[in-house]
Design a protein around this nucleic acid. Structure first.
Length: 575
RNA sequence: GAUUCCGUAGCUCAGCUGGUAGAGCAUAACACUUUUAAUGUUAGGGUCCUGGGUUCGAAUCCCAGCGGGAUCACCA
């Protein structure tokens, strides 16, 4: 049993009253909808005759009652539209209850209703629905945050009482979506982004596939996994951190191109760029190399930008990001030279370490050559790359799944694209020499033995598949959430995930069951909680007279329709 | 994990140097047939996050905890 606010109690009462007058607040039968708000607002002026007999459903978002006529706003999945109700239209007979009682009293903001009527334009020029009939489709028992907006002559929108607490918005995304229209738009954009990518790849003939999320050996990336257990097989399983190794098995199996929009899971820190579950799109194409993949990625993102915004440019915060091809391409060494003036080419580990120190980059003794370069890059280059930029040719130590560079010693054929200061993809010419791959895994195992919790583990079955022969292949992984952040101008990953991971909601410890065994009736328990008595210990420690008084006072205040407890009853709880 | 800010009515927020709470919207009542953040009059609504401390007295000061935001670190 929960404690209800005055408004919630009121709405529960209205629900009862509706039933008493023969209106089912939750009817079963369908409600025929033949138009949306957006459709009316867009087309009414041009095709007035088509809107003489409409039927629309949605959520009641506001009412302005003026005696025997009222205005209100209905919100459906496409937007809001004003409606106009006149008492004598919906109550042509002597009995005006439908208007006076049901419409004016028993309907609340947030209720889902169906309207029938015709479209007209008010004296103030707003396209509205003149209601000839309405039907309650679902009674809302919780008050919705009321957000109001005004628009001045210049079209500047002012919002009042915004529902803006991030915690509430993420925990109760359903409310956020009802009340904040731009949130809905962000998610529509995200879906459109994904479908554009899917169409782009499908049209090239690549196969969208599904691979295991529960994996006996996790691989394909450097990250800590979530571990679980299968009862029947009595074996540990891991939620995938990547699907790379499975997609490559499919290339071995003879598919020319495979891709998957994959939910991956990494048991690591959370921030505005990290959520424990996130979406990575991986694509592998046989007989291609990383240069080819750069061209594909450029073209795909340009396509996405145009699909979403009608042009190759996207405003992200203070930056206007331009996805128009071609993008700049730097080797990692060039990019570091460009931003620091220092040349890392041919430097050994010791020289790199002192260079890092000179540049004020934090390093420690466990870092090898590759890691040192990566740290310098991360500190001095990455944040400065706002426009999409290819960074190519990474140190081999950091890239155990990438093919060694065809001409540069110590490097691999790998690129990342940095955009708005963050990596948005990672791609290689895939390593397909099984002997080399085994050695690289073994180096990773060595790192693991030295205590790196993110080193890769050796996947024997994957190596076996490579031994059968994998064609030369280009592969790419694209962080869908981070890309969505850029494409929708969202400052946090939580803004592009419907339900970002949150700490569990705090619940006051409550010995409700123990209270019942003491003979306390169920309806007192929430009142006790409200008075701060949550545990048997607290109960036993309180003064029975005060408890009795408080309980009776609280009963009256909450308008609970039950008899007061007797003082002896209360004493018996404490005894 | 570190630093910092925040937690007051259903929502958005005020509340000064400590004197037991305020506004607007929402809710309830009345009026009002084209309003639009409708309006006018009236009313109800708060363990001021939790627990300790200082004090005659704490929403306010101090400490601890819980929850959240931001930045940084970790994390490709």
């Amino acid at each position: 049993m929960q404690l209800l606010s005055e408004q919630e109690l009121q709405r529960r009462k209205y629900r009862e009253e509706l039933m008493k007058v023969g209106i089912n607040p939750y009817p079963s039968e369908l409600f025929e909808v033949n138009v949306t708000a957006k459709e009316i607002l867009q087309n009414y002026e041009k095709r007035k005759l088509d809107y003489k007999n409409i039927s629309i459903a949605g959520r009641l978002m506001s009412t302005r009652i003026m005696g025997s006529a009222s205005f209100g706003e209905l919100q459906d999945s496409t937007g809001r539209i004003q409606f106009y109700v006149r008492r004598d239209d919906i109550c042509p007979d002597e009995n005006k209850d439908l208007y006076n009682t049901v419409f004016k009293k028993l309907l609340d903001i947030g209720d889902i209703i169906g309207l029938t009527g015709f479209v007209f334009t008010t004296q103030t020029g707003e396209i509205s629905i003149h209601v000839t009939g309405f039907k309650l489709l679902s009674k809302s028992l919780k008050p919705l945050p009321i957000v109001k907006t005004t628009e001045d002559a210049d079209g500047n929108v002012t919002t009042y009482d915004a529902f803006s607490d991030p915690e509430q918005r993420y925990r109760q995304r359903y409310v956020d979506l009802v009340v904040n229209p731009e949130v809905r738009n962000t998610f529509l954009q995200r879906t459109k982004m994904i479908s554009t990518m899917r169409d782009y790849l499908s049209n090239k003939g690549y196969l969208e596939v599904e691979t295991p999320i529960l994996q006996p050996v996790y691989g394909g990336a450097s990250a800590r996994p979530f571990k679980t257990h299968h009862n029947t097989l009595d074996m540990p399983l891991y939620l995938r951190i990547a699907n790379e190794l499975y997609l490559k098995r499919l290339i071995v199996g003879g598919f020319d191109g495979v891709f998957e929009f994959a939910k991956d899971f990494r048991n690591e820190g959370m921030s505005r760029f990290h959520n424990p579950e996130f979406t990575l799109m991986e694509l592998y194409v046989a007989y291609k190399d990383y240069y080819w993949m750069m061209d594909l990625f450029e073209e795909m993102l340009e396509t996405v930008s145009i699909a979403l915004h009608g042009r190759a440019e996207v405003q992200v915060g203070e930056h206007l990001i331009n996805f128009q091809r071609p993008w700049k391409r730097f080797t990692m060494a060039e990019s570091i030279k460009h931003y620091t003036g220092k040349d890392i080419d041919g430097k050994n580990e010791q020289e790199l370490r002192s260079l890092a120190a000179e540049l004020g980059v934090h390093v420690d003794d466990t870092m090898g050559k590759g890691k040192l370069i990566d740290e310098i890059f991360g500190a001095h280059v990455e944040p400065k790359l706002i426009q999409p930029t290819f960074i190519i040719d990474y140190p081999v130590e950091m890239s155990p799944l990438a093919k060694k560079h065809r001409s540069k010693e110590g490097l691999v054929e790998r690129f990342e694209v940095i955009c708005n200061g963050k990596e948005i993809c990672n791609a290689f010419s895939e390593l397909n020499d099984p002997i080399d791959q085994r050695q690289r895994f073994e180096e990773q195992l060595e790192l693991g033995r030295r205590g790196d919790p993110e080193s890769m583990v050796l996947d024997e079955d994957f190596l076996r598949s490579l031994e059968y022969g994998m064609p030369p292949t280009a592969g790419i992984g694209i962080g869908i959430d981070r890309l969505a952040m850029i494409m929708t101008n969202a400052p946090s990953i939580q803004d592009v995930l419907f339900f970002p991971q949150m700490r569990p909601e705090k619940k006051a410890a409550n010995d409700a069951e123990a209270f019942k065994t003491l003979g306390i009736a169920e309806h007192w328990i929430p009142l006790l909680a409200k008075m701060g008595v949550n545990t048997v210990e607290q109960l036993k420690g309180s003064n029975p007279n005060k408890l009795f008084n408080d309980l009776c006072g609280m009963r009256k205040k909450m308008k609970l329709e039950v008899a007061n407890p007797t003082i002896d009853e209360v004493k018996s709880w404490i005894a």
